[in-house]
Design a binder for these strands. Structure first.
Lengths: 235, 235
DNA sequence: CGAGAAATTAACTCGTTAGATAAATACTGT
DNA sequence: ACAGTATTTATCTAACGAGTTAATTTCTCG
């Protein structure tokens, strides 16, 4: 009875702590940017004492860079999982757009982090040998697919895979990253299901029409529902 | 001699002061975002006493909103100056892309401000009746051009003008707004003249190929110089 | 020219924030 | 069980930054 079991005030869990810190930091940096992020909020949301951030990771900028590197690691890993080789070229391109779109939709923090890093003129990325060595498999995938498409006659013309990659990313990125302002400007919610579906269909149709020379139903059809109703805005 | 001319310590210039404050604020907000911007730096760069910001405009957020509204006003004004009506449809689309591209190139602060506002989930824009009433003429211009193109047979298919507008803006915006990170990732300067020219040609070719069904030289030709050399990166 | 208003400067305040110091607690190996 | 180290908590600090107060100078108009 006098031998009451010792009650621990806290437990050690360095790995878990580190993970919680980085996850909280990711949310904080993506929600508020580098300058707007608050170290105390990160600590609180990680369920940690603020001192832990400095103990396990480093100062605010170190923390930010680690989050950024983690974000690149994650997308690169998923990209590698995408198998375009065995699909016929138009399907492969469609798959690529679909993946990019849905990755961005599922990971809005990634978009925000990229914007923050670009505001900083890529100052941190430049110092990261880690990210610079993480090559995306997409450019080579696209090159292969385009070559196959030209040979098979599916595609009329060769296109620079880097340009095509940037174009596909841009079509997806801009819509999602700027959905808040665009939604205000157009006076409608660009993130609701119908709007998202319509956007994806448009992008696929646009790129495939350019590559194949054949227009698909979705590109040509003027749908009665959707964005067309809001016939009045831009940027 | 005793009647030395009174030497003024400073002169009044409320309008000039206001303009200098807003210009300095635009630079500051676009360079550092809302949270990263420093009121003292704005004052210093405007050649003003900090108190002047509060006297002439208001607090930091008021200042930011006014800058944002000014940026929208400016692009809307230039958009209205673009006359697409008398051009044949493919030329009109090319002109539109060219304008958008060059406007973004000439006004990188606008891109940064939009990113900042989207980070804030368009919180300020939502409160601005001013911006909400500034309708862009582009959507209607595009609708007209597309309709004419379909009638004349230049374009194979009708396309939703809002989607097309977002696509054109996105193709330009993403490349320029993210040029810092993309340049690191691809290991080359995306803003140098050749890269810019190549990008513009690609975008025009992509969109026109999709609309007309005919591929242009620039879309099809695999150029020896340029981005293709950097065959290894993404996002 | 002189009084009152407008514009501007100078200096201060007070909460916030990144980061540091020091002490306490938990764990590990012997 | 205990000594030493790793991990965590509690508390402090020094600078910064947005916004304010109050005094000063310039301008306008009767």
């Amino acid at each position: 009875m006098a031998k009451a079991k010792r009650v621990l005030k806290w437990q050690r869990d360095p790995e878990g702590m580190r993970i919680r810190i980085l996850e909280a930091a990711k949310q904080e940096f993506s929600a508020h940017g580098l300058a707007g992020a608050r170290v105390d909020r990160i600590a609180a949301n990680a369920g940690a004492n603020k001192r832990m951030l400095y103990y396990h990771v480093g100062n605010k900028e170190d923390l930010y860079l680690e989050v950024l590197e983690g974000a690149y690691e994650q997308i690169r890993a998923e990209e590698r999982g995408l198998d375009l080789e065995h699909l016929d070229p138009p399907k492969a391109i469609e798959r690529l757009i679909d993946f990019t779109w849905n990755y961005f939709l599922r990971n809005p923090e990634f978009l925000a982090l990229l914007n923050t890093e670009n505001l900083a003129k890529a100052r941190h990325l430049k110092r990261s040998t880690k990210v610079k060595s993480m090559h995306s498999p997409f450019v080579e995938m696209i090159r292969t697919v385009v070559n196959r498409g030209v040979e098979s006659g599916d595609f009329r013309v060769a296109v620079d895979p880097v340009q095509l990659y940037i174009s596909i990313a841009g079509l997806c990125f801009f819509y999602l990253s700027n959905s808040a302002t665009l939604s205000v400007i157009f006076g409608r919610d660009l993130l609701k299901k119908e709007a998202r579906d319509e956007r994806l269909a448009h992008m696929v149709a646009l790129v495939l029409a350019a590559l194949t020379g054949k227009s698909t139903a979705d590109f040509g059809k003027a749908k009665p529902t959707g964005l067309r109703a809001a016939a009045h805005q831009a940027v």
